[in-house]
Lab assay of single mutants.
Amino acid sequence: MFYPNSPQTSPQLTQIPYGQQYAMMQRQIQQPYHPFATTEPQARLYPYHYQGPIQQEQGGFITQQSTAASPQYVQMRVTPVDQSIMSGYPNQTANGSSSSSFNYNIHPQQQQQQQQQQQQLRHHAMPVGSVPLQDDRYRKQLIVNYLAPDVTSTDLHELFSRFGELDGARIIYDKQTNMSKGYGFVYFCHAEDAKEAVERMSGYEFHGKWLKVGYSTNPLNIVPSNSSPYVHAGSRGAAG
Rank of each mutant, 00 (worst) to 15 (best):
Q92F: 07
M25Q: 09
Q176T: 09
I85C: 11
Q26R: 14
P32F: 03
S202M: 11
P35W: 09
E165H: 14
I54C: 09
S130W: 11
R170C: 01
A233E: 10
N105E: 05
D167I: 02
P149K: 10
N145Y: 00
V131Y: 15
V223T: 05
P17L: 03
K195C: 14
S180I: 01
N226H: 10
K209W: 01
N103H: 13
V74I: 12
D174R: 03
E192C: 13
Q65T: 12
L133Y: 10
Q112V: 08
Q176F: 15
Q117L: 12
G164E: 01
I222W: 04
N218Q: 01
D174A: 09
P229I: 06
D136V: 06
H207W: 15
D167N: 04
I171M: 02
H34S: 13
Y33R: 15
F185A: 00
H207Q: 12
A68Q: 04
A239F: 14
Q55C: 08
Q176S: 07
L13N: 10
F206E: 00
L45W: 09
A37P: 13
G164C: 01
H124N: 12
V186S: 01
T154G: 06
G52V: 06
S225W: 09
G234H: 15
V186I: 12
S97C: 12
S227T: 09
Q118T: 08
T38N: 10
A23T: 12
A68C: 08
G88M: 07
Y22K: 15
D82A: 12
A194H: 00
Q72N: 14
Q109F: 08
Q134R: 14
Y146F: 07
A94D: 06
A68S: 11
N91M: 08
Y173R: 07
Q116D: 07
R77Q: 04
M76I: 04
A148L: 01
Y3L: 08
T217R: 02
Q15N: 10
E165G: 14
P71A: 05
D136T: 04
Y173N: 07
D135E: 03
Q28C: 04
Q109K: 13
M86G: 14
Y48C: 13
P71Y: 04
I172M: 02
P80M: 13
A233V: 04
G240W: 13
F102D: 05
A239M: 07
T63V: 04
S202A: 09
L121A: 06
G60Q: 12
A233I: 05
G59D: 10
D136L: 08
R44C: 03
A94P: 09
I85W: 14
R137H: 04
H34G: 07
V74E: 13
S87W: 03
T93I: 10
I16P: 13
R137L: 03
T93A: 11
E40Y: 07
V81S: 10
V131G: 12
V131T: 07
S235A: 11
Q42L: 06
G52L: 05
S180Y: 00
H107Y: 12
L166W: 00
T9N: 10
Y187D: 01
S101C: 04
T39A: 07
Y48L: 10
Y173H: 13
S225N: 08
A169I: 01
S130C: 12
Y33K: 15
L220V: 13
W210S: 02
G208H: 15
N5V: 04
I62E: 09
F102Y: 13
P11G: 06
N226P: 04
F2K: 15
R44L: 08
L133D: 08
K175E: 02
M86I: 11
Q111N: 13
G129T: 09
W210L: 09
Q15R: 14
Q109R: 11
Q8K: 15
P53C: 07
A68T: 09
A37I: 04
L121P: 10
R27Q: 04
N105M: 04
Q176E: 03
I29F: 04
Q114E: 08
S225R: 10
Q118C: 08
G88P: 09
V78A: 13
I171V: 05
F185E: 00
L121Y: 11
E196M: 15
Q15A: 08
G208I: 02
M86S: 07
Q109V: 08
T93K: 15
I171D: 00
G182I: 00
A194Q: 00
S228R: 05
Q119L: 12
H123K: 11
N145I: 01
G19S: 11
P219N: 00
V223A: 04
G234R: 09
N91D: 09
S87G: 09
N5T: 07
P7V: 07
I143A: 01
T217C: 04
I29M: 10
G240K: 05
A43I: 03
M201D: 00
S161L: 12
P90D: 05
T177S: 07
S6R: 14
A233L: 12
K175R: 05
H190D: 11
V223E: 03
N95E: 04
Q134D: 07
I16M: 11
R27M: 01
M25K: 15
P108S: 11
Y48K: 15
A194S: 03
P80Y: 11
A169C: 08
Y230M: 06
L45Y: 09
V74P: 15
V223P: 05
Y22C: 10
Q58G: 12
T152G: 12
Q20W: 06
T39S: 12
I85D: 05
G203A: 02
A94R: 11
P41A: 09
W210Y: 05
S101I: 06
Q83R: 15
L220A: 05
K140S: 03
L156Q: 01
R236Y: 02
G203D: 03
P32N: 07
A233K: 08
W210I: 02
A37T: 12
L156F: 02
Q15F: 02
T154L: 02
P35N: 04
Q120N: 14
S216E: 01
H34Q: 05
T177A: 05
G168M: 01
A125I: 09
R137E: 01
L133P: 09
E205W: 15
D174L: 02
R122N: 06
L220G: 02
G208V: 02
V74H: 14
G59M: 05
M126N: 11
Q65P: 09
A191Y: 07
Q21Y: 03
L211C: 00
F61N: 12
Q64P: 09
A191D: 03
F2R: 15
I29K: 13
Q117D: 04
D155S: 13
P71I: 02
G60I: 02
E196G: 14
D82S: 12
I85L: 10
A194Y: 00
Y3Q: 14
N95T: 06
R137I: 03
Q20A: 08
I85T: 13
D167K: 01
I106K: 13
P149D: 02
S84F: 05
Q30F: 14
K195D: 07
D150A: 11
H34R: 13
A239N: 02
P7M: 07
N178Y: 14
P17D: 05
Q75E: 12
P11K: 15
